[in-house]
Computed example of a mutant assay.
Amino acid sequence: MSEQQVRVADHPERDRFEITVDGELAGFADYRRTPGHVDLVHTEIDPAHQGVGLAGTLAKTALDSLRAEGVQVTPSCSYIAAYIRKHPDYLDLVPESARADL
């Protein structure tokens, strides 16, 4: 993966963050937006690109972007929820009332 160009970008017109490898779509994280809140509902990595850390890169970049926006995050996607459990520095993005569910 280090020799390839990996890029994550928000595509609000498609309601998702996308990760590309050398310009080719490798995965995405779908979301639903409401004012001040984003529900991350599904993350998927193309089977041809699995096992090299792209899902983690996608989750980290999406969460960092949402933090910069100042919105709260609901991790409905099981992968994103697991990522936040593993990286508790993102727990502050989750509304207090939903933290116990993680």
Rank of each mutant, 00 (worst) to 15 (best):
Thr20Pro: 10
Glu24Val: 15
Thr61Met: 08
Gln50Ser: 08
Val73Ala: 08
Glu96Ala: 15
Asp46Gln: 12
Gln5Pro: 00
Arg32Phe: 07
Asp10Glu: 12
Arg16Ile: 01
Lys60Thr: 11
Glu69Asp: 15
Glu24Cys: 10
Ala26Phe: 10
Thr57His: 12
Gly23Glu: 05
Pro47Thr: 01
Met1Lys: 13
Thr20Val: 07
Glu69Ala: 14
Pro88Ile: 04
Ser78Pro: 07
Gly53Phe: 11
Pro95Thr: 09
Gly51Tyr: 11
Gly56His: 07
Ser76Pro: 04
Asp15His: 15
Arg67Asn: 12
Cys77Lys: 09
Arg7Lys: 14
Asp15Cys: 13
Ala81Thr: 05
Gln5Ala: 14
Pro88Ser: 06
Gly36Gln: 01
Ala29Ser: 14
Thr61Gln: 15
Arg33Phe: 09
Gln4Trp: 08
Arg7Trp: 06
Ile80Val: 15
Val41Phe: 04
Ser2Ile: 15
Val6Tyr: 07
Arg14Pro: 07
Leu91Asn: 10
Thr34Trp: 12
Ser65Glu: 13
Asp22Cys: 01
Asp22Gly: 12
Asp39Pro: 00
Ala59Ser: 05
Leu66Lys: 03
Val6Cys: 03
Thr43Val: 02
Leu40Lys: 05
Ile80Asp: 02
Thr43Gly: 02
Leu40Tyr: 06
Leu54Cys: 03
Tyr90His: 01
Ile84Gly: 09
Asp64Phe: 09
Gly53Asn: 04
Asp101His: 13
Tyr31His: 08
Glu24Trp: 07
Pro88His: 03
Ile80Cys: 04
Ala100Ile: 03
Gly27His: 04
Cys77His: 05
Pro35Val: 11
Gly70Leu: 07
Glu24Met: 13
Leu54Ser: 00
Leu93Arg: 09
Asp10Val: 02
Glu69Phe: 10
Ala62Gln: 09
Thr43Cys: 02
His37Pro: 07
Gly51Ser: 10
Arg85Gln: 12
Ser97Asn: 12
Leu54Trp: 00
Gly53Pro: 04
Leu66Tyr: 01
Gly56Tyr: 03
Ala82Cys: 08
His49Gly: 04
Arg33Asn: 11
Pro75Arg: 02
Asp22Val: 12
Phe17Thr: 02
Ser78Glu: 14
His49Leu: 03
Arg16Leu: 03
Leu66Trp: 05
Ile45Glu: 00
Ala59Gly: 06
Val8Pro: 02
Thr74Phe: 06
Ser2Phe: 13
Arg85Pro: 04
Met1Glu: 11
Glu96Arg: 13
Leu93Pro: 00
Glu18Ala: 11
Ser97Glu: 15
His42Asn: 09
Ala59Ile: 09
Val6Ile: 15
Ser76Met: 03
Gln4Met: 08
Asp15Ala: 15
Glu18Asn: 05
Tyr90Glu: 05
Pro95Gly: 06
Ala29Glu: 13
Tyr31Met: 03
Glu69Gln: 14
Lys86Val: 10
Leu91Trp: 11
Ala62Ser: 14
Glu24Asn: 13
Leu102Arg: 09
Ala55Val: 02
Asp15Phe: 12
Glu3Pro: 15
Ile45Ala: 02
Val71Thr: 11
Gln72Ser: 15
Tyr79Ile: 04
Ala68Ser: 14
Gly53Gln: 03
Glu24Gly: 09
Val73Ile: 12
Gly70Asn: 07
Glu13Gly: 08
Ser76Thr: 09
Ala68Leu: 08
Gly23Leu: 06
Gly36Thr: 00
Leu91Val: 11
Pro95Asn: 07
